[in-house]
């Protein structure tokens, strides 16, 4: 096992980093009073910049496009997910870990995006939202003149 200079195995460091991030982010991104009562602040998100777009990804197994509501308003991305229950009669549950119900998540976008060109793709339970940056938000090379 690879160890760093403090002797902590790397997978643990990675785990700790992920946990730290998880804990710190969960509280940062839930504006008070925006979530409908009973909705949990899920799903977990991964967000990164890719070229000239911001990418938001969420794992939503069992969710179909009709169960999803995505909107971008005032620099915030709102994601509402209704995960259908598979309640059946004459059934005994031995394990019930998969969450059901309505989830919502509001993400304040760090950059200005072109609302008209936002795309969402749901494949094998993974949702990927592509939010192209506006012209104004794209990096621009500034020429320095001297004279």
């Amino acid at each position: 096992m690879v160890r760093n200079m403090f002797g902590i195995p790397q997978p643990w460091q990675q785990f700790r980093r992920e946990m730290d991030r998880l804990v710190s982010n969960v509280f940062d991104y839930i504006p008070d009073g925006l979530l409908p009562a009973g909705a949990r602040s899920l799903p977990a998100l991964n967000v990164w910049e890719e070229g000239e777009a911001l990418k938001v990804e969420a794992e939503l197994p069992g969710v179909r496009p009709d169960d999803l509501e995505i909107s971008v308003v005032g620099g915030e991305l709102t994601l509402k997910v209704g995960r259908p229950d598979v309640e059946q009669a004459d059934v005994k549950y031995h394990r019930r870990e998969r969450s059901v119900g309505t989830f919502a998540r509001v993400l304040r976008l760090p950059i200005e995006v072109d609302v008209d060109r936002v795309q969402a793709d749901l494949r094998n339970g993974v949702l990927t939202i592509t939010l192209p940056k506006t012209e104004a938000a794209k990096p621009r090379k500034i020429n320095v003149t001297s004279g």
Binding site: E18, R21, L22, Y29, A44, L45, V47, E49, L54
Partner: peptide, 10 residues
């Protein structure tokens, strides 16, 4: 190498 702005799951 992706630099995540938010990385809540692996």
């Amino acid at each position: 190498q992706t630099q995540y702005l938010l990385n809540e799951y692996g």
